[in-house]
Each structure stands twice: as C-alpha cells, then as structure tokens.
Amino acid sequence: MKSTILIIEDNEQNMYMLSYLLTQSNYTVIEAFNGVDGLRLAHENNPEIILIDIQLPDMDGYEICNKLRHNGLPKNTTIIAVTSYAMGGDKEKALDAGADGYLEKPINPETFVNQMKHIVNSK
C-alpha cells in the first residue's frame, strides 16, 4: 500500500519538485499551499508523513507543527520541516515545535527521498 504524504508549501516550484519526486517514488501526494488548508487536509486524510515549509503566508511552520501535534493527529505521523531557514537554532526550534526531522532547502533531488525515509525510519 502506498504511503500518503501531505506537503504544506507555498512556493509552486518547490511544491512541483517535491510532488514529482515523491510521486515517482510511489507515494500518494496531497498538496496544501498554506497552513489553514494544511491543517484541514491533515485531519481529513491522516497522512503518514507531513512535509512543512517553515515560512508560509498565513502561519509559520512551527505553529502548524504545534497544532498538528496537539490536535488529534495520530502519534505515528512523521512531521518533517523542509525549509531554507538554516540559522543556528532553527532545527532545534522545529523539533521543539513537534517536527521529527529537518531538511534544508534547496533540496538535492537525488538524495531527498532517501533523506526523508531515513527520518521516518529513525522515528
């Protein structure tokens, strides 16, 4: 059975790249371009994995992580921050907000899916 991944990302080019890589790796992909839609789709679909951009137009990824972790999302859901925020402390802030892992942009198309799988498997 294919795993479902929700991507919460406002940049269309990033969304296209992530969706393409994951679809080619036999995942079912659900797309949300803002936090409000992302939260709704997470609760409607219960994806196994959620990829969240930190910088979104309506709420930041930290807030989304926190809301997902405290509003009935299954505990086994893997949340991964995928972000260009790469300053000291940003990874820790994402993990403290409820993310299970952190991947920096720009992503490497050749290694992204394996990096994601590593986070999922190490959870």
Rank of each mutant, 00 (worst) to 15 (best):
M1L: 11
T4L: 12
I7T: 09
I8Y: 05
E9T: 10
E9Q: 14
Q13K: 13
M15W: 09
M17L: 15
L22G: 08
T23S: 13
N26T: 07
Y27E: 02
Y27F: 14
T28Q: 12
V29T: 07
I30E: 13
E31Y: 00
A32K: 04
G35D: 06
L39S: 05
L41M: 13
H43F: 13
E44R: 08
E44P: 00
N45E: 13
N45F: 13
N45Y: 10
P47D: 06
P47I: 10
E48M: 09
I49G: 06
I50C: 00
I50D: 02
L51C: 12
P57M: 12
D58C: 13
M59F: 08
G61V: 04
Y62V: 07
Y62I: 05
Y62A: 06
I64A: 05
K67P: 01
K67N: 11
L73N: 05
P74W: 10
T77Q: 05
T77M: 04
T78R: 10
T78P: 02
I79C: 02
I80Q: 00
A81D: 01
V82D: 06
T83R: 09
T83E: 11
T83Q: 03
A86E: 13
M87F: 14
G89S: 01
D90N: 14
D90L: 01
K91M: 15
E92Q: 11
L95W: 02
D96S: 06
A97N: 07
A99W: 09
D100L: 04
D100Q: 12
G101W: 04
G101T: 09
G101V: 03
G101H: 02
Y102L: 04
Y102V: 03
Y102F: 15
Y102A: 05
L103M: 11
K105L: 12
P106T: 14
N108V: 08
T111R: 07
H118N: 11
I119R: 06
V120W: 00
N121C: 07
N121H: 12
K123P: 04
K123N: 15
